[in-house]
């Protein structure tokens, strides 16, 4: 990381593990539940959040000295909503196919609490450059968890990855299905996303006990 000072690099690496927005800050759980039944959806959502969070962080950071504190949450909401609508309109006009894939996520991005959380906790108090790095870091941290959860849910729930059958054909009974293996349809339902995130939190905290909260 020769390009970045140690402090700046930490802005990116911290959210990947020890200050992960999902497993440590417990933000953005709703979208992690909703769209991780497929790996592809997880990846698309991660990219969308990466864009909105990093650009949004910069905008809020630029405005941080002139935003009235009484209505700052509403201002943040307007910034997110505007960014998302602009992206949606431009995609609809110039990349219609892609916009159809993304349209489902538009509402989920606006309501993603990681975005509001980072605006409130970081962008309002820091310079644009730092805010940008913080946005990248946190959305990557979000992406890591989403992709892990999406990977396991799609693999165990449908026996596919990115829509490609990797465990054999469940109807023709080839691959592992020949030995009596069955897809676990329960993995496709939202509760199993919560259980999977729970397992990640458990593994992470048992490896690094400093993260365990006092009671």
């Amino acid at each position: 990381m020769g390009l970045l000072s140690k402090k700046d690099a930490k802005l990116i690496t911290d959210p990947l593990a020890d200050n992960n927005p999902i497993t440590i800050q417990v933000l953005g759980i709703c979208s992690a539940l909703a769209i991780t039944a497929e790996l592809e959806a997880s990846i698309v959502m991660s990219i969308a959040v990466l864009f909105v969070l990093s650009v949004g962080n910069v905008v809020i950071s630029l405005l941080r000295n002139i935003i009235p504190s009484k209505i700052r949450i509403i201002v943040q909401l307007i910034v997110v909503a505007t960014l998302v609508i602009i992206v949606d309109l431009v995609l609809k006009a110039f990349a219609y196919e892609l916009s159809k894939t993304l349209s489902v996520f538009v509402g989920l991005i606006i309501t993603n609490c990681i975005i509001m959380g980072r605006f409130e906790a970081f962008a309002l108090a820091n310079a644009p450059g730092k805010a940008f790095l913080d946005g990248i870091g946190n959305s990557l941290g979000y992406a890591v968890i989403l992709i892990i959860v999406g990977f396991f849910r799609e693999l165990l729930g449908s026996g596919t990855l990115l829509g490609i059958q990797v465990l054999g054909d469940p109807i023709e009974k080839t691959g592992v299905y020949a030995f009596g293996y069955e897809n676990n349809g329960f993995m496709l339902l939202a509760p199993m996303a919560l259980v999977t995130v729970g397992i990640i939190i458990w593994v992470q905290r048992s490896r690094n006990t400093a993260l365990v909260e006092d009671h």
């Binding site: 002139i66 935003i67 009235p68 504190s69 009484k70 509403i74």
Partner: peptide, 15 residues
């Protein structure tokens, strides 16, 4: 930025 008048003007301009 805490003044009511400022808040109202800011909100109006932003919208």
């Amino acid at each position: 930025t805490d003044k009511n008048s400022y808040t109202i003007i800011f909100a109006t301009v932003m919208v």
